[in-house]
Amino acid sequence: MKRRQAVTSTNALNTLGKLASNTPQKVSFRKATADFLKHCRIKGLAPDSIKFYDKELKQIGRSLAEIDAPILDVNTIKTIHIENFIEYQQSLGRAVSTINSRLRAGRTFFNFCVSKKYVNDNPFDGIQQLKARHEIGATFTRRQLKKLIEAPDVKTFVGLRNLAVILTLAHTGIRLSELTSLRVQDVTFEGKGAINVQRAKNRYARRIPLTKRLRMVLRAYIEERGAIDTDMLFVTVEEQPISGRSIQSMLKQYGDITGVSKEVVVSPHAFRRTFCRLKVEAGTNIFVLQRLTGHSSLEILKRYVQIYGKDLEEAIEKGLEGI
């Protein structure tokens, strides 16, 4: 019997249709990345989160190309390629935390690819985070912190603003991204006063009460700042919102002037770590500290308790009296 040129059976056509629908379309790593970042923007992810994914996925794509992984079709990227990627990163001397960040970004990205049917399976399934040493970065001593706070010349607008920035970092433990997003209306002086962090990293707004000194300095700064077009709290002499990079540069400059930089890297996060350490040393309840700092998990704060908690000093003496 002569075969027909085209398939006409309804059952056969249905079967072929199902097979076709289960076959992922061919999409390159670069195209899939662009689609993923667009999805993140539409979803309303924080700019810093989008920047994180953009940066890490570029590094992943570049490394996969360098180890000859098939990046022209994401569906052909398999677990073995991810394992080779990890070994390649290790050979370059990348820190465990850096590799783990890329693994988290890659896993989330491929979950998106699965949902879009760009791939059948996530090649990161079965890939574990690398084990890292749970260490706490350097913190300032009280002497170093005092030097940095006393460094700005408060007789100038810039000096008063810089003191307000440094004191806000030191007395609240706020993140740099949260600090640069503060608006004038986020600071209240009613009662003891407070800073309302509206654009928090974990998307949960929180209130941080003001210390007496921070309350006094912020009130003086806001009065000197005056009413201008922008409502952002910290501004330049040109009355523009100050950038995170400018604050980092300013802190480094004061670190060099005071000599603190010779002992500790002066950065916004060093102030945050110091805030946590001082609060733990003072016996602040870890759940209260979590509310103040906005940590989504207690794991990091537990490290501070394990290292700086005073209960260790008290416990070590008990039962050993007179021995």
Rank of each mutant, 00 (worst) to 15 (best):
M1P: 12
K2I: 14
K2F: 13
T8W: 11
T15S: 14
L16D: 08
V27L: 10
T33Y: 08
A34G: 10
D35M: 05
L37A: 01
S49F: 06
I50A: 00
K58F: 12
G61M: 13
A65S: 14
A65G: 10
I71N: 08
I71H: 00
L72V: 11
V74T: 02
I77E: 04
I80V: 14
E83K: 15
E87V: 11
R94A: 13
S97G: 06
S97K: 13
R102G: 02
N111F: 01
N111P: 03
Y118V: 03
N122Q: 06
P123F: 09
G126D: 00
Q129R: 11
K131T: 14
V154I: 15
G159F: 03
L167G: 02
R175H: 06
T180H: 02
A194H: 12
Q198L: 11
K201H: 08
R213Y: 13
L218I: 09
A220P: 07
A227Y: 09
I228N: 03
D229I: 12
D231S: 11
P241E: 05
I242E: 07
S243E: 00
I247L: 11
G255Q: 02
V265D: 13
V266P: 00
P268H: 06
H269E: 01
T274G: 09
L278R: 05
L289A: 02
Q290D: 07
R291Q: 13
L292M: 02
H295G: 04
S296N: 11
R303V: 03
R303L: 13
V305F: 04
Q306V: 01
Y308L: 00
A315M: 12
K318C: 10
E321F: 14
G322L: 12
I323A: 13
